[in-house]
């Protein structure tokens, strides 16, 4: 019996090493992505600018985040934009681009998503340059320098 059991456990042992490597590489990947976001400022259509004072927050956060065509913001590992604020839901809200405009949508977050002080309902709302977005303890300004279409 021992032979087969130790074989199976050995497989598990090796698989754990691979899972570990996968987890590390994934983290590194997110790291690099975050770094690239930081570096290539100004090239994207739109970005979120933090208006909290960073020293008021007890976690690390960047001054600005570029927005790609579809971003899910939240605390969870699967979010495209991960923010470590514990007042955020795992999947908090989504900002996406459609017909040249950006829209924001709440993803049933516990503490809600606020646009210029008003809590978002079930429907997505179009974002305009200068809108203030509040999620958890974080406040951002939505910046879209080039304007919409036209």
């Amino acid at each position: 019996m021992g032979e087969i059991l130790s074989k199976i456990l050995t497989y598990i042992f090796v698989i754990i090493i691979y899972l570990f490597i996968y987890a590390i590489i994934r983290m590194i990947y997110f790291d690099i992505r975050a770094m690239n976001r930081k570096k290539s400022g100004g090239l994207a259509d739109a970005y979120l600018k933090l208006i909290n004072l960073r020293r008021d927050l007890d976690f690390n956060i960047d001054e600005s985040y570029e927005l790609e065509d579809d971003e899910v913001i939240g605390r969870g590992a699967k979010c495209t934009l991960r923010l470590p604020d514990k007042y955020l839901s795992v999947r908090h809200c989504r900002i996406y681009k459609a017909d040249g405009s950006f829209f924001i949508e709440d993803l049933d977050s516990t503490n809600g998503t606020f646009l210029n002080g008003d809590e978002l309902g079930d429907e997505a709302v179009e974002l305009i340059d200068g809108d203030k977005i509040s999620i958890g303890r974080l406040n951002f300004i939505f910046v879209m320098p080039k304007g919409v279409d036209e």
Binding site: I16, F20, A23, F30, A34, F59, R75, L83
Partner: peptide, 21 residues
Amino acid sequence: MSYARSMKPLFYIILLNAVGA
């Protein structure tokens, strides 16, 4: 860096030691 660190790798290390033991 600016996001919550995953605890998964740690979990795997512990699991590996358990399986190894």
